[in-house]
């Protein structure tokens, strides 16, 4: 089983991308869960969302404490005092950060010893005319998971986005997918 924790801010679509990823993985025949961490919901407040992906039925209905992959949708969260993005992250896990900084810089900042991938999702999103970087990060996650194709995710988009937003989101997805592919990154935490 792979467990993923998404860090974002209220309104940035952490819950949405976790559900899109689960939908795409389900399309690939995986068992999946997607659930947000709930509390008093405030726009801009740090939020988390979670995924579980497995080849067999998922019966766990508790929180995710030791994720295999942590995705940081908003680089400012690295500096938010109440957020520790590497908390519980498996030592051989993967930290995927939306930032213009290098993995080495993020390593110095977080002290995380495992694999780190950075991509400037915000710039990539802007380059395709998308407003949010969450879908770029979703593309990157799909790529590192290895077995989920962009087409799987695109299928999910059809339900999630209106006609107008569909094309830019598909472009953002491809941008994220290609950004990781270009560096030939592969996750050890594959299914």
């Amino acid at each position: 089983m792979i467990e993923i924790r998404w860090h974002g801010r209220g309104g940035q679509g952490a819950k949405t991308v976790s559900q899109l990823l689960a939908g795409a993985a389900l399309r690939r025949g995986r068992y999946v869960q997607a659930f947000p961490e709930y509390g008093p919901e405030r726009s801009g407040a740090p939020v988390k969302a979670f995924n579980r992906l497995d080849t067999k039925e998922i019966r766990l209905h508790c929180g995710v404490y030791e994720p295999d992959i942590v995705v940081v949708l908003d680089p400012t969260l690295l500096h938010a005092r109440e957020v520790r993005v590497t908390e519980g992250l498996k030592r051989h896990g993967l930290l995927l950060v939306n930032t213009a900084q290098t993995p080495e810089e993020i390593r110095a900042l977080t002290g995380f010893s495992g694999r780190i991938i950075t991509l400037d999702a915000e710039a990539l999103a802007r380059s395709v005319g998308a407003r949010f970087s969450n879908v770029v990060m979703l593309g990157a996650v799909a790529r590192v998971l290895g077995e989920i194709s962009v087409e799987d995710v695109e299928h999910e988009f059809a339900h999630a986005f209106g006609e107008k937003a569909l094309a830019t989101n598909i472009a953002a997805l491809h941008a994220g997918f290609a950004a990781v592919d270009a560096r030939a990154e592969r996750s050890e935490a594959s299914l």
């Binding site: 389900l26 068992y31 659930f35």
Partner: peptide, 12 residues
Amino acid sequence: QDGFTITHSAEP
């Protein structure tokens, strides 16, 4: 059904 744990969790 359990609040949030089930009501708000997406499952197949």
